[in-house]
C-alpha cells in the first residue's frame, strides 16, 4: 500500500510538472518522471505474489508475474523513442526560441 502511494505520488508529480513547468525541456523531463511512475507501477503489480525470477527450479518459490514486465518493456522502448523524437523537435525550436518557454512558442506559432 505504501509503495502504491509512492508510485501514485511519482505519477502526479510528473503530471503537475507537465502543467506547471514553463520550460519545454522541463516539461519533457516531467513527462519522463510520469512514465517512470507508470513503469514502477507495472513492476509493483508484477511483484504482488512473489519476487523471484520465474525460472523453473526444485525449490517451491513464489514467482513474480512475467507478463506485466514483458509488456512494460515494450512501453519503455516506445516512451524512450518518443522522448528522443521530442527532444530533437525541441532542439530545432530552440534555434528561434532560445528561452524555450512554452507559452512564448505557443503564442508565436498559433494563428
Amino acid at each position: 500500500m505504501f509503495l502504491e502511494a509512492c508510485v501514485l505520488a511519482t505519477v502526479l508529480c510528473g503530471f503537475f510538472g507537465i502543467i506547471f513547468k514553463k520550460n519545454l525541456v522541463m516539461k519533457i523531463i516531467a513527462m519522463d518522471v510520469m512514465s517512470t511512475g507508470v513503469i514502477a507501477y507495472y513492476v509493483l503489480v508484477a511483484g504482488r505474489d512473489g519476487l523471484f525470477t520465474p525460472i523453473l527450479s526444485d525449490r517451491p518459490l513464489t514467482y513474480a508475474d512475467p507478463v506485466p514486465q514483458a509488456v512494460i518493456l515494450t512501453a519503455i522502448v516506445i516512451g524512450f523513442s518518443i522522448q528522443a523524437l521530442m527532444l530533437v523537435g525541441v532542439m530545432k525550436l530552440s534555434r528561434d526560441n532560445p528561452t524555450l518557454e512554452s507559452s512564448e512558442i505557443e503564442q508565436n506559432n498559433t494563428p
Binding site: M86, L93, N97, N108, N109
Partner: peptide, 22 residues
C-alpha cells in the same frame, strides 16, 4: 517552426494521455 510545434504538441498530449491509459 510552426509545423514542429504543432507536431510536438500533438505528440506530447497523446503520449501523456497514453501514460494514464497504461
Amino acid at each position: 517552426d510552426r509545423s514542429i510545434w504543432v507536431g510536438l504538441r500533438y505528440l506530447f498530449i497523446s503520449n501523456t494521455a497514453m501514460l494514464f491509459y497504461l
